[in-house]
Amino acid sequence: MTGGAGFLGSHLCEQLLSRGTEVVCLDNLITGSRRNVEECARNPLFRLVECDVTRPLSVAGEVDLVLHLASPASPKDYQRLPIETMLVGGQGCLHALELAADKGARFVLASTSEVYGDPLEHPQRESYWGNVNPVGPRAVYDEAKRYAEALTCAYRRERGTRTGIARIFNSYGPRMHPDDGRMVPTFVCEALRAEPLTVAGSGEQTRSVCYVSDTVRGLLALADSESEGPVNIGNPHEHSVRQLAEMIRELVGSDSPIDSTVGAVDDPQRRCPDITVAGEQLGWQPEIGLREGLLRTIHWFAGQLGADTASDRVRLPTAGS
């Protein structure tokens, strides 16, 4: 698995290990962390290899599955690392595909809903081609993933590689970086610190957020299938950004105000998946409700931040409430 020490990758490693699967995690730790895979490292079936996947890959022995997750994923990271983002979507994907082709393995690409850009179709189906600005500040991530999808399809058509493409919508949960700029960790940490919750733009733009365990189940369902994809993996329940900020503030028990900041360039105004294909081909749909998922995330971040960083005004509910 490339990018296995990242947010999604580390959860995926854990689930594969729980099946008794041997996992080789390839990561340069540019946005991932050894801390994310500390528990995995205690399992003799797990091996972390610190390497750059934009260089040719070599893995000894048989390989049944190659999962390509390596990429900066938050706008803060991919705008800080634009060239690295393009290279891992291009050369990194190429080398992961070469490894799969050489080993006769199934290949799964972790693509993104960002391939739809600021969509003119709602909800977004896999047949929609997207509305992407190829030269805007988000382009390095969007176009890297679009290129990776095209390359993956080329390997299937020309080399017969057994490939699958997952288009992952906003996922959240434990192990997200508190300062990576993405919506859920930003709101949670601001509320826990009794700081104003900063909503970009009007806050009326919508998102659908999927708890990490559901996203991982979807990726594994795709890996276990022969579906070519692309397949949307996300939660079809849509909420405005302001609604999500208000819900997080309520669950934390914070009195923090909600402030507006300047909206991001090319920020999608509506984002919600049609998951019909995932249901029909993979038998998958999300199981964790929004309040439950947010509570799990809030409790994890509260533990990470420590009691001394949370305001006395914060009144966290119990995890089962």
Rank of each mutant, 00 (worst) to 15 (best):
Q243R: 14
A223M: 05
V212S: 08
L251C: 07
E250Y: 11
E246V: 00
D214I: 09
A191F: 08
E250Q: 11
D179V: 11
L220V: 11
P196S: 14
D224Y: 08
S208V: 02
Q205T: 10
N232R: 09
Q243A: 15
S208L: 12
N232G: 12
S213P: 08
H239Q: 13
C210E: 05
S202W: 05
A221G: 10
E228Y: 04
R167T: 07
P174Y: 09
I168F: 11
A191N: 13
E226I: 10
L222Q: 09
G201A: 05
L219Y: 11
S202Q: 00
F169A: 12
A245T: 14
A191H: 09
Q243F: 10
G203H: 01
D179P: 00
I248S: 01
I165A: 10
P196L: 12
G229P: 04
V188K: 08
V184K: 06
V216D: 00
A223C: 03
P174V: 02
E246N: 11
V216Q: 08
G164W: 00
A245L: 03
P236F: 00
P178Q: 12
T163R: 13
L251A: 03
H239V: 06
V231K: 02
P230V: 11
H237W: 01
D214R: 10
P185L: 14
R242F: 04
P178F: 11
P230K: 05
S240C: 09
F169Q: 10
L220S: 03
P185F: 13
E228M: 01
T206L: 01
A194W: 01
T186P: 00
L244Q: 07
A221Q: 07
L251E: 05
T186L: 10
R242A: 15
I165N: 00
T186K: 11
L219F: 08
R217H: 01
P174S: 13
L222G: 14
T206F: 05
A194G: 15
T163V: 15
C210G: 02
S227Y: 03
Q243K: 01
L251T: 04
M176R: 14
P174L: 15
L222T: 04
D214E: 09
S213D: 15
V212Y: 09
T198Q: 13
C189R: 11
A191R: 10
E246M: 12
G234N: 10
G229T: 01
P174I: 08
T215K: 07
A245Q: 09
D224F: 02
E238A: 03
A221M: 06
H239N: 04
G234L: 05
E204T: 14
M176F: 04
I248L: 06
Y172Q: 04
E226T: 05
Y211R: 03
V209P: 05
R193I: 08
S213I: 03
V212H: 13
C189E: 04
A223S: 06
S225H: 03
V241L: 15
P174G: 13
M247V: 11
L244M: 02
N232C: 10
F187V: 04
E246L: 12
N170Y: 14
Y172N: 10
